[in-house]
Design a protein around this nucleic acid. Structure first.
Length: 972
RNA sequence: GGGUAGGUGGCGGAAUUGGAAUACGCGCUAGCCUUAGGAGCUAGUGCCGAAAGGCUUGAGGGUUCGAAUCCCUCCCUACCCACCA
């Protein structure tokens, strides 16, 4: 059987390529444009997994094609070599992290080479190399000088097991990403980068970038911009004020209390005025001790405590409101204090309900449509529930119309008025509890009086103690019958009626009421509706003094002005904590002096080398193990010359990887991190391919880093301040069982095993064939399907082999079989399709096109000339096999620098096509016609067809639609 | 709960963007060949039906001569975020 020896061939060409350095990329090449293709460099974990193969081998197809198109392609690789796992492994096995890491790199380098990717190894970058981290430190110092890097006491995520601070991104579900231990909050002095200063620039930059919208949107959400206002609340009998941030100034009249974050300085500053300070202090301490997980578990269950004897003044209506401390307000966002509007915010509502705080509705929503000359009416209605029956009470009019009980209210108290109306209509009066549910502005038409009206409708929620009827003060029109129904019955009735009149407010009132009762456990038979229990949307202002009747958007700005607040913008993005209390990282090049504070290490002393120590364990209090390096620690203060100590924290690895793509441009420069000239030849990165998991961390951090460098003048101006022109995220490969690969599940696929069995070309091509690459899908590894690719490559080998009956390309350099017209067309079409598909990263369909071409070649035969074209198309996918067959064809040069074949557009055009005949939308016939057939001719031919005549049954088509090169559609 | 991407045969997935749904591959079935293999070759393979024919792109409705593709309603899955005022 013609099965080729992949081991021999692949080894041979990998050696040959390395020897002849064909992938070594010069900075410039005559008459060739530069193209920078970047893949995320690996962490040297010790073994290359399927994910790495997917990350490296598939983009390699793209870069190979770019090269064949005549581009000078930079496709570099290196190692993100600092980081926790090295240290953990080292501590466990008593090795040095350096040794562990560098040995892993040696092994993985071999593995990566086995992929047959066209990486330029001469530009390899290793972040743990002093020649690299020297510049990491240098750039950090530039940031420090500019005030972009600073030290501050902040609550940080602390892993008690790893004894280190974790970035928010390293905390997964309240647990340490690495070891799974529950993460706690701890206050520590940390080095931070002011990424928040760049929040706006990072957002604006996205506008111009030609990235997929989903990636941009993910970054936007992460940055989390909110526009709103800062408003000050005065404290009664006190000169101080509390500033809050809100996105809904339009709800200010509904603010019935305030909440401060436990860390808010006001509390400490006013402890003497707080009569229950002891309890407050206790609450604050408890809140601080909570782990992230606890906070998440308790999510909806609010806790808090009132600052007794402290009252604030709502600046909108001068009402006195209480002040609370609760951990649902964060110190790190906004001003660490909020105004609480329980009627229009779910969190505030939950809190108000628990602590029985007042709820005041100030936003109503409109129902119905506005008419001319509306009469104003105020009134209300109620959702009435009998918990013994577990049913709701509705009124039925003599005309058979279903209503919520209620009616107009004059000058009397709203609640009392509504209840009076209800009693008059229904007789129900034994209400044991009542709640204010919602408000709506209802446009409706009163058919009796024949006038359009606008009613402000307040809805109450009433729970009955009993369904006893009182004396009904009957008025002539109020002869309702009580109906006890499930909410669904009423809702479907109203929805039906909605076709001619508008009852949306009742539907919403009822759903809100049901939700309220279900949550309170009073209604035990119904389920929650998806609608929010609280009206959080926009609407028309009510209960808001002179702003009544205005819409939210309008009122927002007017109210800010009214209370002398000011517009403010907040971001969810926090400053980036970059210090790690760990050994295996780049030392932060700072010197602490008791007199001068934190000072930059002198530039001439860079790199601040990582000292050799014996024990890599961090101190239990979180101090970095570098504090154990006695000699290294002690230095002279660069300012005063006195005794000083080095900073012992190291930099987060995200810092290392924030600029590695710049070093690739100029990897061995001793004087600069990279020269301007070389950055100009390569930057910005033309295409950055990586994992979706880095969208909001590495990708955002490195954009920030680049912008900051740009502003410092470290990046040539003409490059702009965005490092990546295009970014594409790939999907993930699952285990054969469709689950994420993991050792515990035992479904890990070892790529080396498959490379040994089938060869690198097969594995590469299988991964490219498995599904569309730049969609964030997930594809199970199918051990059977990979055989199909190997079969394909074997057939390629076979068709080229001298013994092949189809063709002996090696014995005869002249075409042995002339391709028929169809074959020539298919060949040209395939050139077109494969080229386009690779450009779009649709490798799966490109491969399918190659398979179809091979099928055709096997049937029809192929000239050696055309086979060479096929080989060129195959070369990016199966570089070893293509190179071998290319050389067997007698070529001395490498196929990988051949020009990408061009297709002949004329040959692609079809001279005929199959005309589809549709009759009433169904395919009834098809036949071959010339490609340029005109409508009249096509119609004529169609009507002559036997099948068509039969289907038409002597009827004449009412309409005929002819679509050139496709079909003709007859409508009877 | 929010954001994003999706839902097409037994499986991975195609479909020129509104024009023959299921390309290509895996798997499966039958046959051939043989140096008995995870080999090769040939034919078949969405579903129902003996056939004519009918049905089919998560479910239901709509627009259209024509819908996987566009519009409404609903259901489900994956990833990320999650008390951010």
């Amino acid at each position: 059987m013609a099965s080729y020896d992949h081991k021999k061939i692949e080894k041979k060409w990998q050696k040959e390529w390395e020897k002849s350095e064909i992938y070594k990329t010069p900075d410039e090449q005559k008459s060739k444009d530069n193209f920078y293709a970047l893949v995320e460099f690996p962490y040297p974990s010790g073994n290359l997994h399927t994910g790495h193969w997917y990350a490296f081998s598939v983009p390699d197809i793209f870069t190979r094609k770019k090269r064949m198109e005549g581009k000078n392609v930079l496709f570099p690789i290196g190692f993100d070599a600092f980081g926790l796992p090295a240290e953990n492994a080292a501590i466990q096995r008593g090795l040095s992290p350096k040794k562990w890491t560098y040995e892993n790199m040696d092994y993985m380098r071999k593995q990566i080479k086995s992929i047959g990717a066209s990486f330029d190894w001469s530009r390899e970058v290793i972040t743990a190399d002093p020649e690299y981290y020297k510049w990491t430190q240098w750039i950090f110092l530039k940031f420090f000088e500019k005030g972009l890097a600073y030290q501050a006491e902040t609550p940080v995520n602390w892993c008690p097991k790893d004894k280190t601070v974790l970035a928010n991104e390293q905390v997964v579900g309240g647990h340490c990403e690495r070891c799974g231990t529950e993460v706690i909050q701890k206050n520590m002095k940390q080095w931070m980068l002011k990424i928040t200063d760049y929040a706006e620039k990072l957002l604006e930059g996205l506008e111009k970038l030609n990235w997929k919208d989903e990636i941009k949107e993910a970054q936007r959400n992460w940055i989390g911009k909110s526009e709103g206002a800062e408003i000050e609340f005065e404290i009664k009998d006190n000169k101080s004020k509390i500033k809050i941030f809100t996105t809904r100034p339009d709800t200010l009249f509904g603010a019935t209390y305030m909440v401060l974050a436990p860390e808010h300085p006001f509390i400490e500053n006013h402890k003497s005025q707080v009569t229950n300070y002891k309890e407050v202090e206790k609450y604050i301490n408890q809140a601080k001790k909570k782990t992230q997980l606890q906070r998440q578990k308790e999510e909806k269950e609010k806790t808090g405590i009132e600052l007794k004897s402290i009252k604030a003044i709502n600046p909108a209506n001068n009402e006195e409101i209480s002040v609370w401390v609760a951990d649902y307000v964060f110190s790190g966002y906004g001003t660490g204090a909020i105004m609480a509007v329980p009627a229009h915010d779910e969190r505030d509502f939950g809190f108000a309900k628990k602590f029985k705080l007042p709820v005041k509705h100030v936003i109503a929503w409109e129902s119905g449509s506005k008419r001319e000359r509306e009469e104003r009416r105020d009134g209300g209605c109620a959702v009435i529930f009998d918990h013994q029956k577990q049913k709701y009470a509705f009124g039925k009019t003599p005309e058979g119309i279903l209503d919520l009980f209620g009616g107009g209210v004059g000058n009397e108290d709203l609640t009392r008025g509504i209840k009076r109306e209800i009693e008059e209509e229904s007789g129900l009066h034994d209400f044991v509890s009542e709640e204010l549910l919602d408000e709506a502005l209802v446009h409706y038409f009163n058919y009796k009086k024949k006038v359009p009206r606008l009613a402000r409708a307040t809805c109450l929620l009433l729970v009955l103690g009993s369904d006893k009827l009182g004396k009904i003060a009957q008025e002539d029109h109020e002869d309702y019958k009580i109906l006890w129904l499930d909410p669904e019955e009423a809702i479907s009735y109203w929805e039906e009626r909605n076709k001619d009149s508008d009852y949306t407010h009742w539907i919403r009132f009822l759903k809100r009421g049901v939700n309220w009762l279900v949550m309170a456990g009073i209604d035990t038979t119904n389920k929650l509706y998806p609608e929010p229990t609280v009206h959080t949307g926009k609407g028309i202002l009510v209960n808001s003094g002179k702003f009544d009747g205005m819409d939210s958007e309008n009122a927002k700005w007017k109210i800010i002005k009214f209370v002398s607040g000011k517009k403010a913008i907040q971001y969810r993005l926090r400053d980036w904590v970059v210090s790690r209390q760990r050994y295996w990282g780049a030392p932060i090049p700072i010197i602490h002096c008791t007199k001068d504070g934190a000072a930059a290490a002198p530039e001439k002393d860079l790199p601040v080398l990582l000292p050799e120590i014996k024990d890599y364990k961090p101190y239990d209090d979180g101090k970095s193990p570098l504090a154990k390096a006695g000699k290294w620690l002690k230095v002279k203060c660069p300012k005063c010359g006195g005794e000083a100590e080095r900073e012992t924290d190291t930099l987060d690895t995200f810092v290392d990887s924030s600029w590695y793509f710049l070093r690739y441009c100029d990897p061995i420069n001793k004087k600069e991190f990279a020269s301007s000239a070389k950055m100009k030849t390569w930057m910005p990165v033309d295409l950055y391919s990586g994992g979706a998991e880095h969208t909001t961390m590495h990708l955002l951090y490195s954009r920030f880093w680049f912008k900051a460098m740009f502003d410092l003048g470290l990046i040539p101006k003409e490059l702009g301040d965005e490092p990546y022109k295009e970014r594409r995220n790939r999907g993930i490969i699952l285990g054969p069982d469709g689950q994420k690969m993991s050792k515990s599940k035992g479904n890990v696929v070892d790529p080396d095993e498959y490379v040994a069995k089938f060869g690198a070309d097969t594995v590469r091509m299988y991964l490219a064939f498995i599904g569309p690459y730049n969609e964030v899908g997930s594809y199970p590894w199918n051990p059977q399907a990979i055989l199909g690719i190997r079969r394909f490559l074997d057939r390629v080998w076979k068709i080229a082999s001298p013994r092949s009956s189809t063709l002996g390309v090696f014995e005869d350099s002249t075409p042995s079989v002339l391709p028929r017209g169809d074959s020539a067309r298919l060949l040209n079409k395939t050139i077109n399709k494969v080229g386009d598909d690779i450009e779009e990263f649709h490798f799966n369909t490109a491969i399918s096109a190659l398979m179809m071409l091979l099928n055709e070649m096997e049937k029809a035969g192929v000239s050696s000339e055309n086979f060479s074209v096929f080989l060129k198309l195959l070369a990016p996918f199966a570089p070893h096999l293509a190179e071998e067959l290319w050389s067997k064809l007698g070529n001395k040069n490498s196929i990988h620098f051949e020009l990408w074949p061009e297709y002949n557009p004329k040959l692609i055009e079809e001279t005929t096509f199959e005309l589809i005949v549709q009759i009433n939308g169904k395919v009834r016939d098809k036949f071959e016609v010339p490609a340029d057939i005109l409508e009249a001719e096509a119609t004529h031919l169609t009507l002559e067809r036997e099948k068509v005549k039969l289907a038409l049954e002597n009827k004449k088509p009412r309409r005929i639609i002819f679509i050139p090169k496709r079909l003709i559609s007859l409508v009877l």
